[in-house]
Design a protein around this nucleic acid. Structure first.
Lengths: 192, 192, 192, 192
DNA sequence: TATGAATGAGGCTTCATTCAT
DNA sequence: TATGAATGAAGCCTCATTCAT
């Protein structure tokens, strides 16, 4: 993830990975055929870790509005602490399946119960995903205010049609802790 | 632009351009030193055409809210008609200076006069840029409803804190025509 | 043998053998240092089986003309039943010592007693070996008539100067059975 | 041709060719994608030169027996003077279309008019091709007697059923000169 | 004696860049 | 100013070989 993130416009080459991993050229090919394949595996791994962690933290919440508000705040706070994560997500055009599924489900539920008011689910999703991505692009290039994550979450909710008073109340709530232990639980990659 | 747009993850190579342009290898170097230089020139050209066109259409408007609403609608309508444009912008991470300057100016002005209510200009800008970019990513991959551009514009305005009634009024207004003649006026690139 | 035979122009690699044999990479090196060494062992093994079998079938014959006629017929009949054998011999440029020795001895003896009339032993050997090889190349690529082996044997004898009447008589003789048991007796390869 | 011929068991690598040709690595790929492609082109070129030369020398002859006898003698004499040619043909398993076509035509015609007596055209062809190839394999490894080419031609004709007296008469005839100028007329290879 | 992950030398291929015409 | 063959640096990939288990 770090190698992918650190490389700017130019695509990282296999040499970068083997140097970072401290392995031999040939060893790379025992596990991946191309860097694209490695990118896919890394994305999947990242999504697994991050989204599973957030889901665990949201275990108690059932209200879609609260779930979404808390989920976005958790994601952005986590992102703010990790420029590498931001760079990776921004560069890799990550659109994890798990992210899409959970987000869409909550948007739909919130729409049904009248928490969100947008011209459709798709548009709502584009607002959420696009704004978060742009926020990560900003956090990737430099430090931001401690309040930035919640400010972004607030405009997102505002864009979804949530009332100002409710937004203020949601932002006043404490965010649950993300089980950091999950960070270590990297799924083992099976050699090809 | 088409060559840049059509290339997915992998960066296009000089060969792609000379084949598309029907010129000889050496001729490329009469005009550009690298593909990065060509990309910069293409971006600048695109920005010139698009933003100058929108500015021209907004000539009459002075109210920042109206300017922003109309500008976003024009941009998205134009984008909807041109998948290549969308792909190019999404892929090239284009952040034109002109776009940033005009957008920031209008956001600031609108904020000052109370039209927008967000926790800051930066957050507002991230919402606008991120959502538009995501919308273009969607339009890049397939056709969308005729109403999609205005729906996206509506949630953006909602995210900026504009009242629903006002949004409806703005969306009901006709968009001015973009001087299509500009499309043809590709600024001539001077050989280096 | 099958792996060597199936590979066309390109040389087979160790991976091909371990896959075919169902053994691990490292196990190969317990028995052979290189694929060339394996090829040599395979050739020797093949020669042992084939030539020893033919010699056994020729045990009763002492007349060099009859020995040669019968030996060639046996070889070609055996080859006709086994495309893999043909491919292996054609591809490996096999020139077994045993084959050369026995063939040369019979040609010389037949020459001395006036059965063969050629400008020399070497030329005779080239005719026999070259034609048999070419016949195997033909049988390697597809099925041939049941009579093909004997037809090839006939032109070879004709090339050696044997009279037509004698050729007909030789071809009318039944070929002795090759002790098929030998087929199974693969000499055990001693680990290095 | 020289590079292909000089390499023994091991396949020549692109480096061998660029060194022999005195060109840069990349230049190779302007003309050929693989060494196999180069081999094919070289074979075609060789066949063109050699067979066209022999055909020119046979221009006066119409009798299939005389054509075949002279053609084989010319081929073998030419081969005797050029170990590189021999090595190349033996190694490349060359079976040029032109060779096959002309040979088959003459064998068929000779068969029809009773000059050849073999159990079939295919068998006759295998005898001719196989024996010539084996002769070239011999000439490839070392020098042979001045008479060797004609001796080989003689056993081939004998194998085709030509009478001894006739063979002697044919071998006594002088061989026509092969237009050596053709050697220089290498067909130009078009870049891919 | 079998295993198979790790190794790195050797060969392959692309592609930006030059330059004589 | 256009052309396109030639160039060679840079990165890719295979595969023979080792070695700890």
């Amino acid at each position: 993830m770090r190698v992918f993130a650190e490389h700017g416009t130019d695509v990282p080459v296999i040499d970068d990975f083997i140097r970072a991993a401290g392995i031999a050229r040939g060893t790379f090919y025992t596990y991946f055929r191309t860097t694209a394949e490695l990118l896919a595996a890394t994305s999947r791994d990242l999504e697994d870790r991050l989204m599973v962690g957030i889901e665990a933290a949201l275990a108690d919440h059932t209200d879609p509005l609260q779930r979404l508000a808390t989920g976005v705040r958790l994601w952005l706070r986590r992102a703010r602490e990790d420029q590498v994560l931001c760079a990776f997500v921004v560069r890799s055009q990550l659109r994890g399946r798990l992210v899409e599924d959970i987000l869409t489900r909550d948007l739909r539920a919130g729409h049904r119960q009248g928490s969100f008011r947008t011209p459709g689910i798709g548009v709502a999703r584009d607002l959420v995903v696009g704004t978060i991505r742009e926020a990560m692009a900003r956090m990737m290039t430099g430090p931001v205010s401690r309040h930035y994550p919640d400010q972004v979450a607030a405009v997102i909710l505002q864009g979804l049609g949530v009332e100002s008073r409710m937004i203020r109340r949601l932002m006043a709530m404490p965010v649950p802790a993300m089980p950091s232990v999950l960070e270590a639980q990297a799924p083992v990659h099976r050699p090809r």
